[in-house]
């Protein structure tokens, strides 16, 4: 079975813990923090996309809900960051529960459209509300500690990754999700309730995404509807997952690192050509769908596949 060995993952995580000890440059630490954030967003996206086959084009909504709940609680109610971000995650999970009931009964394409539309509706709603600051966004109390944010982001994403690893690769839950993905009716005959499983996966995808949104808000100290609720979060997570390898935990991590590195280098040297970036991103996703159906992970020679194909 793929990804069943824990030691490799733990080693990478331990190495990442050491980064602030080695990297003292503030800008670079910001880059690493953002890289970890994208790993988190890609992995959470893949729980639904890879393990159940449903593409959530409204993934940004969970991120944005988490960011806004955290900001509102901290700014307007004087909450501390941790409980505010936790509630942001809970709110995103609740959103998934409510949105999942009607939409996860739909087939994949309709689900993609429905989630995209819901995310747009939420973005419009936030634009019109007073409590969110509307189009002007919100400013959070600034905490100038790059190391703190790196560790918080890594902590949230790390806990998420290892919880997913346990649930999806070790516990029965992951196999049950894959059964639903492969054949929903066939899964039902074996005693599995597909709608319930898909909703559980959706919530499992949403909660950490909301918390990551909360960390992001506190970290960057300013959020607005475009930066937290725009399509970019969903689109980029999708590209990372498809490019890295769907339906695995390692694939999205690799995809996130490669795409994010590309993005960072591109912005550093070619920031005048913003449109070009989106064109390349689109090209990459089209090419990887056609040429790398299992993503980068699928072409790595040492990868032990879960099943041997004798077909």
């Amino acid at each position: 079975m793929k990804d069943r060995r824990l030691s490799g993952h733990l080693l990478v995580f331990a190495a990442m813990l050491l980064i602030p000890a080695v990297v003292h440059d503030t800008f670079l630490l910001r880059v690493f923090t953002e890289a970890v954030m994208w790993i988190g967003l890609a992995v959470t996206f893949d729980v639904l996309a890879g393990y159940t086959g449903y593409l959530n084009f409204g993934h940004s909504a969970f991120f944005g809900i988490g960011a806004y709940i955290t900001a509102i609680l901290m700014v307007r109610a004087g909450w501390h960051f941790a409980p505010a971000a936790a509630l942001g995650g809970a709110a995103a999970g609740l959103g998934a529960l409510i949105a999942g009931f009607p939409t996860l009964r739909l087939r994949g394409a309709y689900f993609a459209i429905a989630t995209w539309a819901l995310a747009r509706a939420i973005q419009q709603g936030v634009l019109m509300m007073d409590i969110t600051g509307g189009p002007d966004g919100m400013r959070l109390p600034a905490l100038l500690s790059p190391g703190f944010f790196y560790y918080i982001m890594l902590g949230v994403v790390g806990v998420t990754f290892f919880a997913y690893w346990f649930l999806l690769e070790r516990a029965p839950f992951g196999l049950k999700l894959k059964a639903v993905r492969e054949d929903e009716q066939g899964a039902e005959a074996l005693g599995l309730n597909p709608t319930k499983l898909k909703i559980q996966a959706f919530v499992l995808s949403a909660v950490p995404t909301g918390i990551i949104g909360g960390v992001f808000a506190y970290w960057v100290t300013f959020i607005d509807p475009a930066s937290t609720l725009g399509d970019l979060v969903s689109d980029q997570a999708l590209v990372m997952v498809v490019f890295g390898g769907m339906g695995t935990l390692t694939g999205p991590v690799i995809g996130a690192v490669l795409i994010f590195t590309f993005k960072t280098v591109f912005w550093a040297y070619l920031s005048d050509y913003e449109v070009l970036y989106l064109i390349i991103l689109g090209g990459v996703i089209a090419a990887s769908v056609v040429f790398l159906p299992d993503g980068v992970l699928g072409v790595l020679p040492q990868r032990r596949k879960g099943v041997e194909d004798h077909a």
Binding site: M1, A179, E182, G186, G306, V307
Partner: peptide, 13 residues
């Protein structure tokens, strides 16, 4: 069958 899974995984499920 769940085609992308192994025969064993099919029965485990």
């Amino acid at each position: 069958p769940f085609p992308g899974l192994s025969v064993l995984e099919n029965i485990i499920i």
